[in-house]
């Protein structure tokens, strides 16, 4: 059986999926990056390899996410695409008439506007964590809640408290203050969800023509409190798809399938054994000019596979990774 591999390496989570030729999901993995992208990618690859029947042949690989170039080098990608395109392609597969995609990830958030199945507008917020999942995690930890319990508890709120949403530090001070004034935890955390939803719409959603059907993607969609808060803020129903948390990887795999059927080339996939490759990253400071860029270098075995981080192209390798 022919299959397509999709890898989405985000700053907080890494996702891997395998799709069959009809874009049906065969396997999915949702892992915490924990600051070790190379190890997580290799672990994910190994796990997928373990789960696969022998006759499965990976004939196309797509990577996406902030770590897409690293993953592309490690895994051997045919398509390396940004997350916006990947999410749009993935979501359209499940909801062909989707008009708006909301994604709140670990450390960034996005909005994508589609018309007639094609993305026509998007916005990203990579400036601040106050509208993202990492912040919710942090608050759950501080309140000694498991993030899985956060949602159900938030839904119990009766009189949500207004929390200042400028940034994580300010929001946290405000939450502590409200706790000390005696407000109930559920009212505070639902207030937090509302602040996040407000922040999201005021920043990323600013000036966009938001129409239904609206699809809510990303890990944060697990949080029912956030789903309700977003629905209230939007004034529209919001669809939480199954596999919402791996939609980027699904999109990347679909893009790989599109690409491979277009040009009939052979895949660059380095095989599930790539999970065992001795992959090392190292960095150094370039002293050639006052910019003092920090160059990151990735080696597999002895060979330097890729370098990033320079403002000029002095350190870039001649042979470039495909950008589909």
């Amino acid at each position: 059986m022919r299959a397509y591999l999709g890898v989405d390496v985000g700053s907080v989570t890494t996702k891997l999926v395998l799709l069959d030729e009809n874009d049906q999901l065969l396997e999915r993995l949702y892992l915490r990056t924990l600051g070790r992208p190379i190890e997580v990618i290799q672990e994910g690859l190994a796990e997928l390899g373990r789960r696969q029947p022998q006759h499965l042949e990976v004939v196309g690989v797509g990577t996406t996410g902030s770590g897409r170039y690293l993953a592309g080098v490690l895994v051997g990608a045919d398509v390396i695409k940004n997350e916006i395109t990947a999410l749009a392609v993935g979501a359209s597969q499940y909801v062909p008439e989707v008009q708006t995609i909301i994604e709140i990830g670990g450390q960034d958030s996005k909005i994508i506007i589609l018309r007639d199945g094609v993305a026509v507008d998007f916005a990203m917020n990579t400036v601040c964590a106050a509208g993202t999942g990492a912040f919710l995690d942090q608050q759950a930890y501080r309140l000694s809640l498991r993030i899985e319990d956060f949602g159900p508890l938030a839904l119990k709120a009766k009189t949500p408290v207004r929390i200042a949403g400028r940034c994580t530090v300010f929001a946290e001070s405000d939450m502590i203050h409200k706790q000390q004034m005696g407000h109930r935890v559920e009212d505070i955390i639902y207030g937090l969800c509302q602040a996040l939803a407000r922040n999201y719409l005021n920043n990323v959603g600013q000036g966009k023509d938001l129409r239904p059907p609206v699809v809510f993607l990303g890990g944060v969609a697990f949080n029912q409190g956030m789903v309700r808060a977003i629905q209230e803020a939007l004034g529209m129903p919001v669809i939480v798809l199954p596999y919402h948390e791996v939609m980027g990887a699904i999109g990347a795999a679909i893009l790989a399938r599109e690409q491979m059927s277009l040009n009939g080339a052979t895949t660059r996939f380095r095989g599930f054994e790539a999970s065992r490759a001795a992959c090392r990253a190292s960095s150094f400071e370039c002293k050639a000019c006052p910019n003092l860029c920090e160059i990151v270098q990735v080696r597999i075995g002895r060979k330097v596979m890729a370098r990033w981080g320079g403002r000029c192209d002095r350190w870039e390798l001649k042979e470039e990774v495909p950008d589909g």
Binding site: N82, I84, T85
Partner: peptide, 10 residues
């Protein structure tokens, strides 16, 4: 870079 790529792709 992500935004530029996404825009050109789009």
């Amino acid at each position: 870079v992500t935004r530029l790529e996404a825009f050109v792709d789009m």
